[in-house]
């Protein structure tokens, strides 16, 4: 039953035209929800959450750093899945997604590196160390840039998607390294605070704004992917009847 629903969704959203109508219905309410959630989390975290017993107020950059990093990592996993579907099944929507997911992810990876280094100076005493976590995060940014560049350098969009898709799939290995680097080797970066299983080592008064900021960032990412995918679909299907009708309707 669940499998069949997923399969139906896969086929429906696999159609560019259906995706276009679906996204026009979702975006009007997803966009405000994403913005409100993110702003709530950020204001709560940056202004109202208590300061930390060791780091005082400088820990507050966590409310930007962690949402950005987690968004960049999850985005890359989605990029890898799109790459797999694009390479193996040659599905058009997966190629569109491959193009839609990368830019925001690259921006988040950059934000994560910048905020991390600004946070490192007052707490660790350094902006940058070549430890496993930071180096692998820098590689993640390069993987994003590589996927974007590969799509731009090959003119034929279907061929570009296959090349970029393969790079996206291979890069998933790096996501695993980023995630577990703090556990496998000695790093300056501390271990994970939020744990999927077991108790998180953060006070609830700080945890809730953090979780809300993270959710807000992920939703904003989803909004950005939908908007980018819509534009890409319209461009790819520009010669089809339904896009032509859409344009004519927009002109009036």
């Amino acid at each position: 039953m669940v499998w069949q629903t997923i399969k139906r969704w896969y086929h429906m959203l696999g159609s560019p035209r259906y995706f276009h109508t679906f996204s026009s219905r979702v975006l009007p309410w997803l966009t405000p929800i994403a913005l409100i959630t993110l702003v709530t989390g950020l204001v709560w975290g940056l202004v109202f959450a208590p300061s930390d017993y060791q780091q005082g107020n400088s820990y507050r950059i966590i409310f930007i750093h962690v949402p950005a990093s987690s968004g960049a990592l999850m985005g890359y996993m989605a990029l890898g899945v799109s790459g797999l579907v694009a390479v193996v099944w040659r599905m058009k929507m997966a190629e569109v997604m491959l193009k839609a997911i990368a830019p925001f992810g690259a921006a988040l990876a950059a934000i994560s590196l910048i905020t991390g280094s600004l946070w490192g100076k007052p707490t660790w005493g350094t902006y940058w160390q070549w430890d496993a976590r930071m180096t692998s995060m820098l590689i993640l940014l390069f993987m994003y840039v590589g996927v974007i560049a590969l799509q731009n350098v090959i003119r034929e969009p279907r061929q570009a998607a296959r090349a970029a898709g393969l790079l996206a799939i291979v890069g998933v290995i790096n996501v695993v390294i980023v995630k577990y680097s703090v556990e496998w080797v000695q790093t300056l970066h501390q271990g994970s605070t939020l744990k999927l299983f077991g108790e998180s080592t953060i006070n609830p008064a700080m945890k809730y704004p953090l979780l809300i900021s993270m959710l807000g960032m992920w939703l904003l990412y989803a909004v950005n992917v939908l908007v980018r995918a819509r534009t890409e679909v319209e461009w790819r299907e520009r010669r089809s009847k339904w896009v032509q009708t859409l344009i004519r309707k927009g002109d009036q």
Binding site: P50, S51, D52, Y53, Q54, Q55, Y59, I62, T123, W124, G125, T126, Q129, L188, Q190, G191, S192, T193, T201, I202, N203, A205, M206
Partner: peptide, 17 residues
């Protein structure tokens, strides 16, 4: 020549500490 502080993954308000 250089000493860096490592901090752990625990965050709490000073009152709780």
């Amino acid at each position: 020549e250089e000493v860096l502080a490592k901090h752990d993954e625990t965050y709490m308000p000073p009152e709780v500490q």
